[in-house]
Every structure is written in structure tokens, then in C-alpha cells.
């Protein structure tokens, strides 16, 4: 494993709080780790456990789920359901041998751009320490000399030293 391993994390944010926290982080020009790719949902309650598995199976090293604070849900109480579901999901993930730090639930209100950015930084550092998830190894196609064609690479390998 290379020291320069840069994890890729998929983030699911609700439209009302956390996506807006990301907007605010941008407006406040808060610099945070570029490893997270956010996907907007209407509510954290929309996060189907399948999405998490899909992201991990597609090569993500971690998944961040973010929604409004408990009590602040735009849809009254749906983030409590996310919380319940998340507990079950964690059990399944543990059974599959996926480390705890790889899948995280974070509350961030529309005013908490800094908190979202901090949480992302924290998570990236933790996943970086864990190393790549490598569910099926590095499945990117290689050229004959074992290199990844430049058109395929993301920043994971731009920062020299491809994982694995």
C-alpha cells in the first residue's frame, strides 16, 4: 500500500441541510479534502442501504451519509428513520468485515459548512489510515506495462503512487 493513497468517498446529502452546508462551505471558501463526491438526495431518509453497498462495490473506500440534525428534519422526523436504518446497516457492514470508520453518518445543518468540511477532513484521514477497501482489488484496466491509461485516472493516482 502506498503512503500516498488517496481514498475516494461517496457522500449522500439531504437537499435541505447538508447539501446547503456544502454550499455554505463553498461560499465561505473553506478548503477541505477533495476526496468526497457528493450526491444530492431530498432527505437522508432516501439513503437506501443498497446505495452504500453499490458505492463500495464500485470502488469507493468509504461512504458518508449526512442529513439535518435530529429534530431539524425538513420532513419532520425522517432523519430518525435514517438513524434507525443506519444502526442496522452498520451491523451488516460489520458482518461483511467493513471497518467502522468507512461508513459514517454525520449531521450538518445548513449553517454548518465548517462542520461538514471538518467531518469530511476527519473521515478522509481515517479512511486513509485504513487503506483502500479493495473489495475486488483495483479493477481499473491496465495497459501492458501495468499502468492505468491517463484518461481513466482520477485524482487517486494523480497524486503519484497508485494504490495497490
Amino acid at each position: 500500500m502506498s503512503e500516498q493513497f488517496e481514498p475516494t468517498i461517496v457522500g449522500f446529502t439531504c437537499n435541505w441541510c447538508s447539501y446547503r452546508a456544502a454550499d455554505l462551505a463553498g461560499m465561505s471558501r473553506i478548503k477541505y479534502a477533495p476526496n468526497v463526491r457528493l450526491i444530492r438526495l431530498m432527505c437522508s431518509g432516501r439513503v437506501d442501504p443498497q446505495f452504500v453497498f453499490k458505492a463500495l462495490a464500485e470502488g469507493a473506500d468509504g461512504v458518508l451519509i449526512s442529513g439535518c440534525h435530529p429534530g431539524d428534519c425538513h420532513y419532520v422526523e425522517q432523519n430518525y428513520k435514517t438513524m434507525r436504518r443506519f444502526a442496522l446497516l452498520k451491523m451488516t457492514l460489520a458482518a461483511l468485515g467493513i471497518e467502522d470508520a468507512r461508513v459514517k453518518l454525520v449531521w450538518a445543518s445548513a449553517a454548518e459548512g465548517n462542520i461538514l468540511a471538518e467531518e469530511i477532513d476527519k473521515m478522509v484521514a481515517e479512511v486513509k489510515a485504513l487503506g483502500p477497501l479493495n473489495w475486488k482489488g483495483d479493477r481499473r484496466p491496465k495497459t501492458e506495462d501495468g499502468r492505468v491509461p491517463s484518461s481513466v485516472i482520477g485524482h487517486r493516482s494523480v497524486v503519484e503512487g497508485v494504490a495497490v
Partner: peptide, 8 residues
């Protein structure tokens, strides 16, 4: 999800 993980 597939799209944002295109590189992987």
C-alpha cells in the same frame, strides 16, 4: 454512483 466513481 457509478458515474462519480467513473475512474474506479
Amino acid at each position: 454512483i457509478e458515474g462519480v466513481l467513473f475512474d474506479l
